[in-house]
Design a protein around this nucleic acid. Structure first.
Length: 426
RNA sequence: GGAAGGGUGGCUGAGAGGUCUAAAGCAUCGCACUUGAAAUGCGACGUGGGGCAACCCACCGUGGGUUCGAAUCCCACCCCUUCCGCCA
């Protein structure tokens, strides 16, 4: 959520920002509602002041007749106030509905565009592998090695269900220990395991609700299953005032993740690339409210993930997402996408965003500055590692002509072998 | 799921229709005393909104209600704690 004052003072910037993100919201309407809001609030404040003054007086009047007279006159004040309050409530309903739909203003460096097709490549790393044979898809390779069973997955868990098996599990567990080792103690990140079953407020606070209800699983108790640890991690500090000396706060957060993938039928139907249920290690940073701090940490978060891909020797590129492909709250977003040989294109492994105070304003997470003023902190997040998705990139990029898969060097110590042989099964 | 007890400022906690503009203590900050620190004394000390300002308004879990007036009474809900039940 943006500050209404900011919206009023920077109307044109806000409108242009919404347009860049391809989000429809009537900012003019919001401002005229806000004018009305201020007007009614003034009336109510004045009447209440009158009432407060009379209240004091009533106590001190000893003559019963005079006292009754004043009390009776206050009944009229009450009437006026109730009418104004009723009007205000009506206006506020629409005001609030509009406020939560006003998007954060994207950074100047965010390119124009409608969809992920318009994202701009800002960096590439690694050499795209060449094969003397037609590379198999991850789905084929994983099935071939009995690393994943999607047929029984569907039987048991429904569409996009899966069982991970054998070397599929070994690789996932190796990757978990690999990423844990990289983040534990080394980069100033505090490890934390967060809930996936989360109440509504943190979803609204992080900007997932109210507009993405369809993307979330909901329980009969009114809770939701989070699609990322970001939701609970940000909720952790809801309604708190932090100390500046404690900033930046950096977290290496783990959680199971659940996504309905509504509207993505037909996409990535095979394999384990797009599933309803997975696990993810997520980086979250809360820092002081300065643009340059946010930018600095955003680059840091992105680099952290790049290093992992470099160690895994997966060729990747970084794209800066265009206006139409970033969410309501984000100022800027990089997607990191690793090469997928069977598709001859890069596919997303990481998503790195910063929000300024968009999330923390909704969540009411603040800190006290040196001069004693209270400010909303800035928030950022990026994937550390999402599993099992990256298995797809690993098996495809490391496949041999006979279907064997070379284990990335950094994982060999964890998994205890150098290669997953096609012939190993009888 | 059953029963009981609770939710008040950064923390502890008083407060039971009007003087609550929320006691007191702790913590924090400033000053004094001190070689320095501790201790002590004095003072400051919540958040948000409106106003050039004096000042005004709101906020005691949330939302309604009663009343001229609600932290206080009524209703609903949310959350927490303890015990029982269930359970990895």
């Amino acid at each position: 959520m943006l500050d209404i004052k900011f919206i009023r003072e920077n109307k044109d910037i806000v409108i242009a920002g919404a347009k860049k993100k391809h989000i429809e919201v009537d900012v003019e309407r919001l401002i005229s509602l806000d004018d009305k809001r201020k007007e009614l609030q003034k009336i109510i404040d004045d009447k209440r002041a009158e009432q407060n003054a009379a209240s004091q007086k009533i106590v001190s009047i000893s003559d019963p007749a005079e006292k009754q007279k004043l009390i009776a006159s206050m009944a009229e004040v009450k009437q006026v106030m109730q009418t104004a309050e009723g009007e205000l409530e009506t206006i506020m309903q629409e005001w609030r509905a509009l406020m939560v739909r006003v998007p954060n203003v994207p950074d100047f460096s965010v390119p124009e565009g409608e969809s992920d097709a318009d994202n701009q490549e800002v960096k590439t790393w690694g050499e795209i592998p060449t094969f003397s044979f037609e590379p198999k898809s991850a789905a084929e390779l994983l099935a071939m090695h009995d690393m994943v069973d999607t047929e029984r997955g569907a039987k048991v868990a429904g569409f996009r269900g899966y069982f991970l098996k054998n070397d599929g599990v070994r690789l996932v567990w190796a990757l978990e220990r690999f990423v844990q080792d990289r983040f534990m103690n080394r980069e100033g990140f505090e490890p934390i395991i967060v809930p996936s079953l989360v109440r509504r407020e943190p979803f609204v606070g992080t900007g997932y609700l109210p507009q993405s209800e369809d993307d979330l699983y909901k329980t009969q108790d009114g809770d939701y299953l989070a699609g990322t640890a970001e939701v609970a991690m940000m909720g952790y500090f809801m309604d708190e005032i932090l100390e500046k000396k404690d900033l930046p706060l950096k977290y290496f957060a783990f959680s199971p993740c659940f996504r309905r993938e509504a509207g993505s039928h037909g996409k990535d139907e095979k394999g384990i690339f797009r599933v309803h249920e997975f696990v993810k290690y997520e980086q979250v940073i809360l820092c002081e409210a300065r643009h340059d701090e946010s930018v600095k940490h955003h680059e840091e978060l992105t680099e952290n993930s790049e290093k992992l891909l470099q160690e895994l020797k997966l060729p990747y590129h970084v794209v800066v997402n265009c206006g139409g492909d970033i969410g309501l709250g984000q100022v800027k977003k990089y997607d990191i996408e690793a090469w997928m040989p069977s598709e001859k294109r890069y596919r997303e492994t990481h998503s790195s965003s910063y929000f300024h105070d968009f999330q923390t304003r909704r969540l009411n997470i603040r800190y006290r500055d040196e001069d004693g003023t209270v400010k909303f902190v800035h928030s950022l997040n990026n994937t550390a590692l999402a599993l099992p998705r990256i298995l797809a990139h690993i098996v495809e990029n490391n496949q041999e002509a006979d279907g064997s898969i070379a284990v990335p060097e950094v994982l060999r110590g964890y998994i205890g072998k150098d290669v997953i042989l096609h012939t190993q099964r009888s």
